[in-house]
Every structure is written in structure tokens, then in C-alpha cells.
Amino acid sequence: MAESDAGGTEIGLTIVVVDDPAGDELADLHDWLRQDVRGVRMAPVERPPIEGQMSGGVVAALETAVLSKELLGMVVTGIGGWLSARATTRRTKIRVKRGDVEVEIDSANVEQADQIARRLGRELGGV
């Protein structure tokens, strides 16, 4: 973890939506989190172009760095809300990584946002 300009420790997450070749689902999550968790920066990470194809510019992951466990908890809760909202219309799998810890959540197995947030928090180290 890196030191921030404010003297705090940054907590970073990387979020990937599984089976999202066009990046549409991740773009939707990015929009959701920008509205749900204001003040937390989300940086889209673009997939590099494949040789011989013009496929650059596709969002492959979201990265965020926050300065407190409270803000991190808000991000995790926002992810839970997004997955929960989608669970009724489509199956979605995401991977959330914090340092060396990676958690995969499948919306087919979890129906409520609070369950998703608790699981992510528990497995990512006490968020």
C-alpha cells in the first residue's frame, strides 16, 4: 500500500467483471459507483489492443485507492448494491482484488446487497 499526500495509507481495489469482452458491464458498474460512492476516484484500466485488431479502449478493470476503511466499505457496499440490482435480470460474476487477496462473487449465488458486502468485507480483510 502506498502513502498518500495526506499522510494516510491508501487502500487499493481492482475490480474486474468476468465474461465482459466489450467492457459494457464494467462501464455500468463504474457509472453506478460514481453515483453511489461520490468522492471516491475510480480509474478505468483499458485493455491493450490485440495485434491486428482495433480493440483498444475497452475497459478491462476499475482501480480505486481510498484513504479510510469507511470509504472502502462504501465502495464494497456499492458493489453489493450493483450486483444485487442485476441479479434479477442477468447473472454477473466479478473479481475484486485487494493486495494479494482476490474474491470472486457470482450474482447467481447471492441475492442481497448486504450479504455481498459482508462477504467482500470479510474476505478482503475486515472492511
Results as ranks from 00 to 15, higher is better:
Gly81Met: 01
Gly56Glu: 09
Trp32Thr: 03
Val96Lys: 08
Ala61Pro: 07
Gly73Val: 07
Ile11Gln: 14
Gly56His: 09
Gly39Phe: 02
Arg38Glu: 12
Gly78Val: 04
Asp28Asn: 11
Leu67Met: 11
Trp82Arg: 05
Ala60Trp: 06
Pro44Trp: 03
Ala61Trp: 10
Leu67Trp: 09
Val59Thr: 15
Leu62Glu: 03
Leu83His: 05
Ile11Glu: 04
Gly57Ser: 10
Val37His: 06
Ser55Leu: 08
Thr88Ala: 15
Val58Met: 04
Leu83Thr: 08
Ala87Phe: 01
Gly52Asn: 14
Ile94Gly: 00
Ala85Tyr: 06
Thr77Leu: 00
Gly80Ile: 04
Lys97Pro: 03
Thr77Cys: 02
Arg38Gly: 09
Pro44Thr: 01
Val59Asn: 00
Leu29Asn: 03
Gly80Cys: 05
Val40Thr: 09
Leu71Lys: 14
Trp32Ile: 01
Leu72Asn: 08
Gly57Trp: 06
Trp82Glu: 09
Asp19Glu: 13
Gly99Ala: 09
Leu26Gly: 02
Glu63Leu: 00
Val59Tyr: 05
Gly78Pro: 02
Gln35Glu: 13
Leu33Ala: 07
Asp36Gly: 05
Asp28His: 08
Leu29Trp: 07
Leu26His: 04
Val18His: 07
Ile79Asp: 01
Leu33Thr: 06
Ile11Asn: 12
Val37Pro: 01
Gly73Ala: 14
Arg41Trp: 01
Val18Gln: 06
Val37Asn: 05
Val45Asn: 05
Lys93Tyr: 02
Gln35Trp: 03
Pro48Ser: 10
Met74Phe: 05
Leu83Glu: 07
Ile50Met: 06
Arg91Pro: 00
Gly23His: 10
Val66Cys: 12
Arg86Cys: 10
Val16Gly: 01
Val66Met: 13
Gly52Arg: 15
Ala22Cys: 03
Ile94Tyr: 02
Lys97Asp: 03
Ser84Gln: 15
Leu33Gln: 04
Gly78Gln: 06
Ala85Pro: 01
Val75Gln: 07
Ala87Asp: 04
Ala61Thr: 08
Leu13Arg: 12
Leu29Val: 05
Ile50Ser: 15
Thr88Cys: 11
Thr88Ile: 12
Asp28Glu: 15
Arg86Ile: 02
Leu83Gly: 06
Thr89Ser: 11
Leu71Arg: 14
Val66Tyr: 10
Val40Glu: 00
Arg98Met: 10
Glu25Arg: 10
Asp100Cys: 03
Met74Trp: 07
Met42Thr: 00
Asp20Arg: 12
Ala22Gln: 10
Glu51Lys: 05
Thr64Trp: 08
Pro48Thr: 08
Ala61Lys: 11
Leu71Asn: 14
Glu51Gln: 04
Ser55Val: 00
Met54Arg: 10
Leu13Tyr: 11
Thr88Arg: 15
Pro49Lys: 06
Val66Lys: 07
Val37Leu: 00
Asp31Ile: 02
Gly57Cys: 13
Lys97His: 08
Pro21Thr: 14
Ala85Met: 02
Ile11Trp: 15
Ala27His: 07
Glu25Ile: 01
Glu25Lys: 10
Ala65Glu: 14
Pro44Gln: 06
Arg38Lys: 14
Gly12Asp: 10
Val96Leu: 07
Ala60Lys: 11
Asp31Arg: 13
Val45Gln: 11
Thr14Gly: 13
Leu29Phe: 03
